[in-house]
Nucleic acid binder design. Structure first.
Length: 1096
RNA sequence: GCGCGGGUGGCUUAGUCGGUUAGAGCACCCGGCUGAUAACCGGGAGGUCGCAGGUUCAAGUCCUGCCUCGCGCACCA
């Protein structure tokens, strides 16, 4: 067994880096796992970061919470393996490479070569891997980075293919259209994330257009901000419950009319009644009002009759009902161009409108739309379209009948632009593949209910909301770098989904046999583009099938992590079966619709199961001003600033204590410093105090054990506190309240251990002879430190390991959790274990709540003493002859301690309460209010200010007293005992075990020559000690002391001797009053006396 | 627009069932204590508890509306 060696000064950074090396050479992480090899598993799943961005402080936050739970569960005896992972596909990688290689369009990429491009992506992915690794190691996030899962590896891709095939086979995968923001210049559609990069405020012409009903003289007015979509119009949507008005123009428009358009007197238009004022610029009369449902089914004349063929649609150019139509702007009638708006598209599909493009992928109108528009870029046609619509009635033969524009209005709005080329994006219906999430919605909700969310409102609220509105998942992307969609399709629409390399090889062989030429398909075929594009398969009917030219949403990749990390179902069957669904994941709340969703989406569709049982959703990290951290703001905090200054321990502890994990965290660099100074310096100094004396005395924690019940009350108190705090700490951990747990523990270390226990125990260890009391103190300190080390270890793993190793000889990370090791119990699982058996494995000292209460009172009294001295202007070092404690429990065990703290010669208990205390009555509103009602405040005041509270109390207790007409009984008042005026006294009030205590402390403020001498001696000692410290003297070093006093009280011989002993003065001379001190003597003044002294 | 979460001294925050002096820490000032400490103790200054109503004998706490910050969703016809 180890005997502690002395501690030395703290250098957190050196300590941490030295430990990192030790952990590396001793393989501490591995042995913390290996030691629990036969225990119940707790499955953690790492959300894969992408290594093509630099790690920031927010990553440290997430990794701290991942790590602390894993370490905690490990110490609880669970087997917690932690496989690292990397997300390596997707748009961010492509964009990075495109920027670097200046390839700003798909044409450019294809000209450069897809293979070369993807190779560049493959390399780019690892740009910051080293930085990630260094950060991960330095912050002590224990995760296996040597065998991570990597989404670009063939094994991983193969598992993803397998998963997709499961969906395909279940009929959950389908090909359809999705309206996406599309940039014709770069030929790419954008994800919402990219779109968000390019919102710009622009002013554009918006138009009010008359759609002439075929069986009526009236027109329906509709509004659009994108005139280029008008040729594609095939329908009008109205709100069935919205009230519409048919209006007749009464007189011609006034001079103020601006822009094109207009209406003739007598013309009739239909629009939402609410919007008439907003839209109409003519005086009108309302002819008729009716609900939108009355309009449904009416047909109208197409604006551009040539543009869209009717096909077999019966509903084209009719009025349709849509409940999403509002009257917040426009006319309450929505112009519907099926291919150029998401709602339009959905409505069109539902209503059977023709789905025909009037705009090509190049952003220009297709031939046959209108002679003046064909082949022109849509965004430059606004004027032409407006001119066509507003031309005088009957003025142009082909195209719009004209006279159809009512009004134009410039409209200011945010519109998405291409963040690369700055062109406005077009909402454009594109071919896309979907997973039919709507088919499994009920299961999604059911599984989500079973997840333990922290905080619960993310699961119920945000995530639940998302699931209740779940849409089919568009999983295909027209990109290059990603998991290719493993679906091959023939011209006639036959399809095949490939679920493994073996299957691909088989299909290729079949195709070759059928006469289609194909490249080799080896076992290690690269499952990326363009290699997989090179294979032509053969359909059932013998037709060639080409691969659908998409890659998958990279969120699909990460959603496959629970099984793809094990190459399921091709490998590691046992491992997978034992680890699905996982027990714990933890990421930022921004992953709600990201990883949290895709994990559940994939597991629900593929396995009909949940993916994770517990999810900790972390709040966003903000800078000290509360602003989001972002590169563009330049307010990113570099974690290394803190790793290299206060260390990773303080950084982690700060992050955990700064607030609830799910609340947004304002990261304040000063906070890290404060944490370092409070928590870690204090802990270190407590440790140093113990270790230095333990080393000096050759303390052996195994030997000469002193049973707790034989130790002093102070020892038993701090051990009981340890028990209480550890228990609460653990309970808070269980409830995800890590911040509360750590704040309480910090408070315990600083206030209870350092500022009370250690301060009060210092002299016990100065004793140079071995004593039972000293031994008790050392065992107590040892036990407190050892347990605190274990409690802190999951959160801040460095310093406590150093301390634990010096105290016990072994790493804290292989130690057991003080509150029990359920993971090691027979039959335990991560979710359930025998609570009693688990508690039996806990190691905590005895708890004595009564003693804790008593000590609280003692400490309050010590503080009260200081207040009394301030009020009475009596310095702390000048002793008082006598202190009285009035009322309260028996504190005799602490009288010595209190006497010392209070600097009084003796403590006495005063039994006659009335000698120093008087009674005050306070109203108990809860009881009084129902009786007194509105009078309660007056009654309360009367009770408070009663002239003779003793008499009032007596009559209240004797059947009740009438106060202002209200019968006041004993439950209606609280009796407070406070000190009598005129005494140097203070009363402390506290509640112990349901009982209200009012305890007073009274000090005798009279001086005697003996007291004055003693006080002077204490002042001299204090000054000399400070001097010794200034001179950097060894604690054992002896000095020669000379003292000259002026106007000072006479020093008693015993006090002079005491000064000599305390200051380790071999020679100690007190010069008589009047002797002149040498010029180099130090001097100070106290209560009018001047003291000179020299230390040699 | 909808949903969620915030708004408490200069800063970070606690505040339970509504109960009468809103509690801490940092920073500041004064005093004290100290041979582990960058610590600690006592006191001071600093608060319209986002705003406005309402319920109540009593509101930081409950209700309504609004403002504001963050996040998300929807919309942007």
């Amino acid at each position: 067994m180890a005997q502690p060696s002395s501690a030395g000064e703290l250098n957190a950074v050196d300590l941490e880096t030295a430990l990192l090396e030790q952990w590396g050479s001793e393989k501490t992480f591995q042995s913390s796992i290996d030691g629990r090899r036969n225990n119940a598993p707790f499955i953690f799943l790492e959300g894969p970061p992408t290594a093509n961005g630099k790690p920031g402080i927010h990553h440290v936050v997430a990794r701290t919470f991942k790590d602390l739970v894993c370490r905690w569960k490990t110490m609880e005896g669970f087997l917690v393996e932690r496989k690292g992972g990397w997300d390596t596909h997707g748009l961010p990688v492509e964009i990075e490479v495109q920027k670097r290689l200046d390839l700003m369009s798909n044409e450019a990429i294809e000209a450069f070569g897809m293979a070369e491009f993807n190779q560049a992506c493959r390399e780019s992915v690892w740009t910051y891997e080293a930085a990630w690794r260094e950060m991960t190691e330095r912050m002590a996030y224990w995760v296996d980075l040597d065998n991570p899962y990597v989404t670009l590896h063939n094994d991983y891709v193969e598992s993803a293919w397998w998963a997709l095939k499961q969906m395909f086979d279940k009929g959950l995968l389908y090909r359809g259209h999705k309206v996406l923001p599309y940039c014709p210049q770069t030929g790419t559609s954008y994800s919402s994330h990219e779109v968000a990069l390019g919102y710009k405020e622009v002013e554009e012409p918006s138009v009010y257009v008359k759609f002439k009903l075929t069986d009526d003289d009236a027109s329906v007015l509709a509004w659009t901000t994108t005139p280029w979509t008008l040729p594609g119009n095939v329908g009008l949507a109205v709100g069935p419950d919205v009230t519409y008005a048919r209006c007749r123009i009464k007189e011609a428009a006034g001079e103020a009319w601006k822009g094109a358009g207009g209406a003739e007197v007598g013309e009739e238009v239909i629009l939402a009644k609410e919007l008439m004022k907003e839209v109409l610029r003519h005086h009108v009369e309302v002819i008729e009002e009716f609900p939108g449902s009355d309009l449904v089914g009416r047909s109208y004349e197409p604006l551009f009759p040539e543009a869209v063929p009717r096909g077999d649609s019966t509903t084209a150019w009719t009025v349709l009902a849509a409940d999403w139509v509002t009257t917040t702007d426009g006319t309450g009638v929505v112009h519907t161009a099926v291919m150029y708006g998401e709602d339009d598209y959905n409505l069109g599909m539902e209503a059977g409108l023709p789905a025909h493009h009037t705009v090509g992928m190049d952003g220009a109108f297709v031939e046959g739309t209108h002679p003046q528009l064909d082949g022109k870029y849509v965004k430059s046609c606004d004027e032409t379209i407006i001119a066509l619509l507003s031309a005088p009635k009957g003025s142009n033969g082909k195209g719009p009948e004209s006279g159809l524009l009512y009004r134009e209005k410039d409209y200011l709005h945010d519109y998405p632009h291409c963040w690369r080329t700055d062109h406005p994006l077009l909402y454009y219906a594109m071919d896309s593949w979907f997973v039919r999430m709507t088919a499994v919605k009920e299961n999604l909700l059911k599984f989500n209910d079973q997840v333990e969310w922290a905080p619960d409102w993310v699961g119920e609220g945000r995530f639940g909301e998302w699931l209740r509105n779940v849409k089919d998942w568009a999983i295909s992307r027209e990109r290059y770098w990603g998991t290719p969609l493993p679906v091959w399709r023939s011209e006639s629409g036959e399809m095949k989904c490939v679920g493994s390399i073996q299957e691909l090889q088989d299909e290729v062989a079949k195709a070759v046999a059928a006469g289609f030429e194909n490249p080799d398909c080896p076992d290690d075929v690269d499952l990326h583009r363009p290699v997989v594009d090179g294979y032509t398969l053969v359909s059932q009917s013998g037709e060639p099938m080409k691969r659908e030219p998409f890659v998958m949403d990279c969120w699909f990749d990460s959603g496959c992590a629970p099984f793809a990390q094990w190459h399921h179902p091709f490998d590691n069957e046992a491992t997978f079966n034992a680890s699905f669904p996982v027990d714990y994941i933890c990421e930022g709340v921004d992953q709600t619709r990201g990883w949290f969703y895709t994990l559940l989406a994939v597991s629900a569709t593929v396995f009909d199961n949940m993916a994770y049982k517990r999810c900790l959703s972390l709040g966003l990290i903000l800078d000290a001003e509360g602003k989001k951290m972002s590169k563009s703001r330049g307010n990113i905090v570099d974690p290394w600033d803190h790793f290299n200054r206060e260390g990773a321990d303080a950084t982690r502890w700060y992050m955990v204590t700064a607030g609830a994990p799910w609340n947004p965290m304002k990261f304040d660099p000063n906070g890290v410093r404060e944490t370092y100074a409070k928590m870690f310096l204090t802990t270190w100094n407590v440790y140093k105090f113990h270790a230095d004396y333990a080393a000096l005395d050759g303390f052996d924690p195994e030997a000469q054990h002193v049973p707790v019940e034989q130790r002093s009350a102070l020892d038993r108190w701090v051990l009981s506190r340890l028990h209480t705090v550890a228990k609460a700490y653990h309970d808070n951990f269980t409830n995800w309240q890590f911040h509360k747990a750590c704040r309480d523990l910090e408070d315990f270390m600083v206030n209870d251990v350092s500022n009370w226990y250690v301060r009060r125990s210092r002299r016990r260890l100065w004793d140079e002879a071995d004593s039972n009391d000293k031994l008790s103190c050392q065992h107590t300190l040892h036990e407190v430190l050892e347990t605190v080390c274990k409690l802190v270890a999951p959160v801040s793993p460095f310093m406590v390991d150093h301390i634990h190793r010096n105290l016990t000889g072994v790493s804290v990370h292989t130690a057991d959790w003080p509150l029990g090791v359920p993971g090691s119990l027979e039959g335990a699982t991560a979710d359930a274990w025998d609570e009693e058996a688990a508690m039996a494995t806990a190691i905590l000292p005895p708890q004595d709540l009564g003693l804790e209460d008593t000590m609280t009172l003692v400490r309050e009294l010590a503080e009260a003493g200081r207040r009394i001295r301030i009020d009475g202007a009596r310095r702390q070092r000048l002793p008082c002859a006598q202190g009285w404690i009035v009322a309260g429990p028996d504190l005799s065990a602490f009288h010595d301690l209190l006497a010392e703290e209070l600097n009084v010669e003796s403590i006495r208990v005063e039994d006659d309460l009335d000698r120093f205390q008087q009674i005050e009555l306070a109203p108990n509103f809860r009881a009084l209010a129902p009786k007194a009602r509105a009078e309660v405040n007056n009654v309360a005041n009367a009770i408070r200010t009663a002239e003779d509270p003793v008499a009032l109390l007596a009559s209240i207790n004797d059947g009740g007293a009438e106060v202002l007409g209200v019968l006041v009984e004993s439950g209606d008042v609280e009796v407070k005992r406070v000190e009598r005026e005129g005494f140097a006294a203070q009363t402390v009030e506290l509640e112990t075990q349901g009982e209200q205590l009012h305890v007073s402390l009274v000090l005798d403020m009279n001086d005697t020559p003996a007291l004055l001498s003693k006080g002077m001696a204490r002042d001299i000692v204090r000054r000399v000690q400070a001097k010794r410290k200034d001179l950097n003297l060894e604690i054992e070093a002896t000095i020669d002391l000379e003292v000259w006093l002026k106007n000072a009280p006479d020093m008693q011989a015993e006090d002079e001797t005491w000064v000599a002993t305390e200051t380790r003065s071999a020679g100690c001379i007190f010069h008589p009053e009047g002797a002149n001190p040498p010029a180099d003597a130090e001097h100070f003044e106290v209560d009018g006396a001047t003291v000179h002294f020299t230390v040699k």
